[in-house]
Simulated scan of single mutants.
Amino acid sequence: MTIKNKVVVITGASSGIGESTAKLLAIKGAKVVLAARREEKLKEIVHDIQNAGGNAVYHVMDVTNLDENHKLIEFTKENYGKIDVIFLNAGIMPNSPLSALKVDEWNQMIDINLKGVLNGLAAVLPTFIGQKSGHVITTSSVAGIKAYPGGAVYRATKWAVKDLMEVLRMESAQEGTNIRTATIYPAAINTELLDTITDKDSLEGMTALYKKHGISPERIANIVAFAIDQPEDVNINEFTVGSTNQPW
């Protein structure tokens, strides 16, 4: 398998999709670098991975800080000597109608969901371009391919990630840098995303939706592993994933 011995960096790795992906890739033989803000959670996950025979380290960082993204790449190279894949997964979803004017939450989503991806790219692309190989994977959302009331800014950030990744794929092909891309559009996945919603009506609606249709983050981890495990000359660019019973 092409996953074995690959060095994979995962942001937003302290819970949910990031945690599940780190554990699965480690089982499959990858060397995993977990990155997030919550050190205790990261330490616990790395401990679990190592106890299961996997190879993992963690690095505390904030994706909204460009310098900390550069330090994450440096940390990875210091520990493993290279980097093959970066999974830009950190995100928040404090949905609300635009009329609620939760401007601070709008800015938080832009900073984490969009600028966090841009910062990760700015940090890793020099390495990928220099070695003429690499794989960038991002977590977008079904909200990144369809418009729904109640979460315009969240959706705007996820649409932006969709376009950003598509252009990265095209430019890499034109420039001959062999950088693979994969954008994942999850529907309702049972993670901590709902914990960020402060608008009462939005929280009630999303909670009911997730209770009915939510599936495990391990399902997304399987998709990440599948994308990485393809031959180097194969790029599967997009995955839309959700419950069989959810009409997203």
Results as ranks from 00 to 15, higher is better:
Val234Gln: 02
Asn190Pro: 05
Leu42Cys: 01
Glu171His: 06
Ile228Gly: 00
Ala35Glu: 05
Gln131Leu: 05
Gly150Arg: 03
Glu105Met: 10
Leu66His: 08
Met61Glu: 05
Ile215Glu: 07
Ile3Val: 11
Asn89Trp: 00
Leu209Gly: 02
Leu98Gln: 11
Pro217Gly: 08
Pro186Asn: 11
Ile110Phe: 06
Asn95Ser: 08
Thr64Ser: 11
Ile3Tyr: 04
Val124Asp: 01
Asn65Arg: 13
Val117Gln: 00
Ile49Gln: 08
Ser20Phe: 09
Asn119Thr: 06
Glu68Met: 10
Asn237Pro: 12
Lys23Glu: 15
Glu68Val: 03
Ala225Leu: 00
Leu125Ala: 12
Leu98Asp: 10
Ile3Glu: 02
Ala56Pro: 05
Gln50Cys: 11
Glu218Ile: 13
Asp62Asn: 09
Val142Asp: 06
Asp48Lys: 15
Thr139Phe: 04
Gly176Tyr: 07
Ala147Tyr: 11
Ile83Thr: 11
Met206Asn: 04
Ala52Asn: 14
Asn69Met: 11
Lys212His: 10
Pro97Leu: 03
Leu164Cys: 10
Glu171Tyr: 08
Asn51Trp: 02
Ala188Lys: 09
Thr191Leu: 10
Ile45Tyr: 02
Ser96Arg: 04
His47Gly: 12
Ala143Glu: 06
Thr2Phe: 13
Ile223Leu: 07
Lys102Cys: 01
Ile145His: 01
Gly16Lys: 08
Ala36Ser: 09
Gln230Tyr: 04
Val63Glu: 03
Val117Gly: 00
Ile3Thr: 04
Asn235Phe: 00
Asp104Gly: 05
Asn51Ala: 12
Ile129Gln: 15
Leu125Lys: 14
Leu88Cys: 01
Val32Thr: 06
Val7Leu: 01
Glu204Ile: 08
Lys115Gln: 05
Arg180Tyr: 12
Asn178Cys: 12
Gly120Phe: 06
Asn237Thr: 15
Lys77Leu: 14
